[in-house]
């Protein structure tokens, strides 16, 4: 405003320039809907990509079960881990029963091994194949060994070593 005339001939005044600037500021290009849509699509793709990356990262952090395929196949064939657990329990129970052998089984095995026997003991045997009749006394000794072969008792194992 205080510029001298000859200077103003060569330059635009600050005032005029500022007016021009504010005019330019006013004329802000509105983004087209297409551009907005493209940018939003980029954003959504980015969300999807980072979510996928995050899932992959978590997946890679999780310890991978190192299972032999044969074992896995067997477990599957038996009906899954629940069944296998049940089987294991049954097995352990069987072992327990075997160790705490009932007196009837123990005495039967000992009798057979020692050669002396009682008829009542044999007939009470749960195994049908070794039930002996009272009449065939001559076969008794051999059948005692047969029984021993079928039912190797805990005491046999202990005696052997």
């Amino acid at each position: 405003m205080t510029d001298r005339d000859n200077k103003r001939m060569n330059e635009l005044t600050d005032q005029a320039l500022d007016a021009l600037f504010s005019e330019a500021r006013a004329e802000t290009a509105m983004p087209s809907a297409d551009l907005m849509a493209r940018i939003m699509a980029d954003a959504e793709a980015e969300i999807a990509a980072s979510a996928a990356a995050e899932r992959a990262r978590i997946e890679s952090l999780r310890p991978q079960p190192q299972r032999h395929p044969l074992i896995a196949a067997m477990v599957a064939a038996l009906g899954g881990w629940r069944t296998v657990a049940g089987l294991a329990t049954a097995g352990v129970a069987g072992l327990g029963i075997g160790l705490g052998a009932p007196a009837a089984v123990t005495s039967l095995a000992l009798d057979g091994y020692g050669g002396s026997y009682s008829i009542g003991g044999y007939s009470a045997g749960s195994d049908g194949s070794v039930v002996l009749s009272a009449e065939t006394r001559s076969d008794m000794t051999s059948s005692g060994y047969v029984l021993d072969a079928f039912v190797p008792s805990f005491y046999d194992l202990a005696a052997e070593g």
């Binding site: 635009l12 005032q15 005029a16 320039l17 021009l20």
Partner: peptide, 20 residues
């Protein structure tokens, strides 16, 4: 800004700032 003022000086007529 100074360079702009110089460059625009020749176009003051177009700019409509002649009688500012």
């Amino acid at each position: 800004k100074r360079a702009l003022a110089k460059a625009l000086a020749s176009q003051r007529k177009i700019l409509g700032f002649e009688d500012d």
